[in-house]
Write a protein that binds this DNA or RNA. Sequence first.
DNA 1: TGAAGACCCATTTTT
DNA 2: TGGGTCTTCA
Length: 1052
Amino acid sequence: MTKVGFEALYSKLNKRQKEAVDQIDGPVMVVAGPGTGKTQILAARIANILKETDTNPGQILCLTYTDAGVVAMRDRLIQFIGPLAYRVNIHTFHSLCNEIIQFNSSYFGYKNLQPASDLDTEKILREIIDELPNDSPLKRFKGDIYYEASDLKNLFDILKKEHFEIEVLKEQAERFFKDKEDSGDFVYKVNGKNFKKGDIKHKDYKEERLKIDRLKASLDLFGVFNQKMAERRLYDFSDMILWVLKAFKEDKDFLLNYQERYLYFLVDEFQDTNGSQLELVNYLAEYWDIPNLFVVGDEDQSIYRFQGANVKNIDLFRTQYQQHLSTTVLTDNYRSAQPILDASRALISLNTERIATIDKVLFSKHPEFSKVTDLPVIRSYTNPIQETVAVGNAIKALHKQGVPYKEMAVLYRNHKHVEDIIKYFNTSDIPYNSKRKVNILTELFVKKLMTMLKYISAELNKPYSGEAYIFEILNYDFYDIAPLDLAKISVEIKNKRGTKWRDFLSEESGGQQDMFANQAGHGSKVEIKRLASDLEYWIKEANNVTVPQLIERLIAKGGVLSYVMQADSKRWQMQMLRTFFDFVKEEAARKPDLTLQEFIETVELYQSSEIPIEAMQVLHVPDSVNLMTLHGSKGLEFEHVFIIRSIDSEWIKKRGNNRDFGLGKILNSAAEESDIEEVRRLMYVGMTRAKKGLYMSYYKKDLKEKEVNKLQFIAELEEKAGLKEEHGIVSDEDILDFEMHYYQYEATPEFELLDHDYLDVLLEKYTLSATHLNTYLKCPVTFYFNHVLRVPSAKSESASFGTAIHAALEELFKNYSENKVMPSVADVIGYFDYSMYLNRDSFTEQGYKRHKEHGKQTLTKYYEKYRSEWEQESVYVIEKNMAHIELGGVPIKGKLDKIVFDGNDAYVIDFKTGNFETAVKKCKPPKDEPKEGHYEETYGGDYWRQMVFYHLLIDNFTEKSWQMKRGEMNFVEPDKHDNFHKEVFTISHEDVAVVKQQIKDTYLKIKAHEFEKGCGEDNCHWCNFVKFYLKKEVHITETLPGSGVDEEEGMS
DNA sequence: TGAAGACCCATTTTT
DNA sequence: TGGGTCTTCA
């Protein structure tokens, strides 16, 4: 190892760099353009201080924003001063604050403060919202959650990002609104148009008011939130600088402790929330009349405003220390060719959010690239596929010329922009590095583990309650069991009524019986035995060990680990496994007596709250092309840089999106220009990553042939930097070749059915019902698994809730017709509670409480609304079973909730739980010219069909000569405005004819075993099952969309 | 012409 | 969920 020392490295600095380093006293600001060596300056400055003064290294505090920055800083410093570098305090702002909090936690009033997880925060917010008064706009009952998810997100964002502003701005905001309203020039933005108070409609005005009200409510929440966090000895990362600042303000001794500790402060750029980092540094430095402060930064590269970074910080700093400040501008660029620097400067000069007096004209000083004269390239392509293929081809060509892959990068605005490129790289074997965060909870692999845990937990709590999971687990590729054998077993089990999967499996593993010796393949049998004994082992172990231990055994004992070791993407699978296990351990550390059930509920809470558990998916291939977002590229450099998908609408988002209507957005509703400047800086950062070759591209028409606008910065570059756009052309052959691979992914799932003779036997006595008909029309694959193989399925919370409501109503009417006395509300709620109790195992503890409360309220309102109506009805039947009915050779059956009679005239009533708004489209008949693939328009809505089906049942019911006059869907739950709804159906001849035909067609198709083609919907449980589990290979980024449990409609 | 309905789409990232 | 945009209907 060559020994490097200060002198040697110092001599390599240029004049301006030396200037910045040499002045060792007083505040210094270094404005450094890209590629000018910021880290080197920081390191050299520290080295110089140590050389020129008798300062102890421990008295120097160097602050940066990221951990990566700390590492880079330390490495650089080692080159200058060797091991001494370890004695210099290099911190991130956060780690410094963390240290202060930990060290002084008693000052903050709490011992053993812990950082809060996102879930803690979520839980606290839920609690707060639960405590809000019922008329609060934040608390609206929606389904089974007591708040609007988007509100929660907004709150969360406000709390996280803006809580500095809040205290100050709360008052400001209110004054702002009041003044504006009073003066009449409050400009409301509604549907993208501006309105003044005079010409705004009442409705729009109200919407705007609502936003303000919500905002105010959320501001009030903030105080409560902080208090609750403190009670639990938790702190949010975004909280902690606030806490420390407060401590500095209040306690001068506390401050003194830190001021005496450090003599020099060096800051690597402020990336903070509205000046808090600057404020923190000021507090530390205020001890000295002329502080030894050294700050480096580039206002043109400030691209993290969304996370708090503010261009104004650097300006603020300058004005603050004006008097003694010496400013150095670094203009010697050691990275890029001159044409790249010129072009990027031409672009960034258009920004106004810059330090007015400093115009950084950069000069290329790179020994090799400064000689390069090639201009940056702008290319347009006809469509995105052309662009993808062209970029891929260009990369291949460069590699052929000897450019290593790792010296090339593809930069883009959003992650989704790179998906095509990845497909292209995969098909043409170009190695690439892509670093992105993946939520492991949505990954197939983790979902499989979770299902196994759910099975174990269910069986542990109540034997046989996990039946619904077994079929799925048996199909996992952790074990080598043939799907067809499983299908057969499934049917056999169903035929032997009362037999449970678990019993069957343990018999198999015990080897006492050989049920399927002749049918199932021998290989499958061995594997089934293995899995069966594993499952029993885990269930037994679950009683004796902690959750992390159980999961450890799940991984080690079963097929999981060996599967991972053999998988193509070992590294990624292991990474997921590790992240998942770390998470388990963390949860267990938080709550030492964690039960499996609790752990599962926690994970489900993460999922429902959309809080990710992230693993960094790093495909580390040594020499490979770098794919990253423009944000991710900050601080890096590559010989050749491709900036793709330069489309205006993709880069510059329209403001006022629904994700947050935080203070910033409302107060700056006119600040669109600064948005554009931020994105222009992003482009600038991207461009200045290139050393030698810079290629920017866009496409003219999207895949729907719609014209798109190119990025305005491209036009600016043409105008201001004199770059010429060229049209890129790709050969048809290349395009075709790529498209072939591209569409391969879209293939519909297919799988192997049981043999036809066997299916015939199964379907011999098949009778069609309305529910079955609906299921088949929607998705034959689901029909096959649910109604032919009859795989046990778990009942969802909402389905069980529906059952309980139905049971309560049934009991009500039964009692009334038998005793002629209307049961009281309390009675009805009693019936409901009893049914809930019977079904309590399909609820979580909280869900059970919530649904019970919701049911109580709903039934009370419903009862009050309809009681008098019910008392008018004299003759009716409840839960009428209609079987052995034949319709043109098709056996049909059904169970009707309630039929009210007037002589032979029958009025059919069906009770529906669930959201009225979403049910409306289910009540519509088919259209004459349906849109391709549109379910309701093609076949009509499920509820409509159900009613027509009932009509057919009654018409063909030979025992009685009833006539169905009317059908009615009665919605038990009111809509948002608390109105109850009935959907009344008068069934026409045409309706009857249509459904008759559907029944016949469907019956024939069932008899002909047409089950292979599913609906292919993203959230279809069984289509996903076929797609992901019956196919025995796993793609790295493949995730399983939708949840494992399907939504039940509660149709009876 | 305006209202109502259907449909599509939901950054960037650090601690 | 909820806004913007495009389509359909009165």
